[in-house]
């Protein structure tokens, strides 16, 4: 079976090499170039939104934060007395009982919202630029 497959593989290779390539008409190149020259689309280099260096910096910062946060305890909160969950509850004076929101969860949610708002701004600007 293996030998048959090998032989069939070799046979197909010879057949396909024999078939060769077909050539288009002689004015094909000229026609394509004439069409392309009339194209007004600017051909610019592809640039990712976040460059390789950017990703390296983000990765390094992430690793540093992860290392510091898991290895050392600061003994105090960088947010001090600022309690987001109590702020929300006090400001809107809810008429129903709201369960205590864990501080970590509240901060994460808050920063996620900030990031989403910033990203929406950046992406819409980028989109406008591309459309123009």
């Amino acid at each position: 079976m293996e030998a048959e497959n090998k032989k069939l593989d070799q046979f197909t290779k010879e057949v396909m090499q024999d078939a060769g390539l077909q050539a288009p008409s002689t004015d094909f190149l000229a026609n394509v170039m004439a069409a392309v020259t009339h194209e007004k689309v600017p051909v610019k280099a592809y640039k990712p939104l976040i460059s390789k260096v950017g990703w390296l910096i983000i990765g390094a910062l992430f690793l540093i934060f992860a290392f510091v946060l898991t290895r050392f305890s600061l003994g105090f909160s960088i947010f001090g007395d600022w309690n987001l969950s109590s702020l929300v509850i006090e400001k809107y004076e809810p008429t129903f009982e709201i369960p205590e929101i864990p501080a970590t969860y509240a901060y994460c949610f808050f920063f996620l919202l900030v990031f989403v708002v910033i990203q929406v701004k950046i992406f819409s600007k980028q989109l406008d630029k591309n459309l123009n």
Binding site: L21, Q22, A23, P24, F28, L29, V32, M33
Partner: peptide
């Protein structure tokens, strides 16, 4: 275009 026209065609 010259390099790839035959294969593309």
């Amino acid at each position: 275009v010259a390099k790839y026209k035959n294969m593309v065609f």
